[in-house]
Amino acid sequence: MTTDTIISVKGLEKHFDEGKLKALRGVTTDIKRGEVVVVIGPSGSGKSTFLRCLNLLEVPNKGTVTVEGVDITNPRVNINKHREKMGMVFQHFNLFPHMTILKNMTLAPMKLLKKSKAEAEEKAMTLLRRVGLADRSNAYPSQLSGGQKQRIAIVRALCMEPQVMLFDEPTSALDPEMVGEVLDVMKQLAMEGMTMIVVTHEMGFAREVADRVIFMDEGHIIEEGTPAEIFENPQQQRTQDFLRKVLV
């Protein structure tokens, strides 16, 4: 692992409802290139908001997000360019229902990376073969199972050849028997050296794949460390309480 920092977050705050709800209350952390960071915490802890601030799907009220040296919270920065480099996978897949799988995957590369149709489709097919869904390239999202949809959502993001992948509870909406196939794809991605920030409740995945685990509660980072540190020897009371509940 290199020590090259890819994302640097400083003093991040996010308020909703005109300040009545403070989802983030000053979050500071650095993400290194190639690092797999898993964010855990109770619901309402702000972990999803934190993730969504990293590509400005939520615009923070305070603090900075610096990606490869550029502060993307500066309004003058072209956020679209930065989002191209940061793939995102959602809890509810968010595939485009009116397009085939192949079109879902080639739309952005063709429009944004100016790839030819042939190039974009070749890349898409390569990725589809990797996740074992090459035969479904002409299907529509509604014809796929949840696990298949999420695998497609992952490779759709990969088509843009991102440097960072953000996962927002990618397995929470899946039937239990489909969780494995999605986690397998993510593990493979991690092994290939992709920088990943994953918000999840899958503690097994965190333990096995994460380089670092961040525990968040009430808009703060309460504790962070290696999986061994967090899971075997949590220092904070709140971390211990949380882990006790989810690890029974």
């Binding site: 590509n55 799907l57 679209n80 360019k81 930065h82 989002r83 191209e84 940061m86 793939g87 995102m88 959602f90 509810h92 968010n94 595939l95 485009f96 229902p97 009116h98 739309l107 952005a108 429009k111 944004l112 959502a153 759709r156 993001a157 843009m160 953000l166």
Partner: peptide, 26 residues
């Protein structure tokens, strides 16, 4: 669904392109 806009924007599509290719057809 709001997620459709988010998916489009997270790929790097501008709000106009997201509107044209993703939202309006649906």
């Amino acid at each position: 669904e709001k997620g459709q806009t988010e998916a489009g924007r997270s790929l790097g599509l501008s709000s106009l392109r997201t509107m044209i290719y993703i939202i309006l057809p649906q």
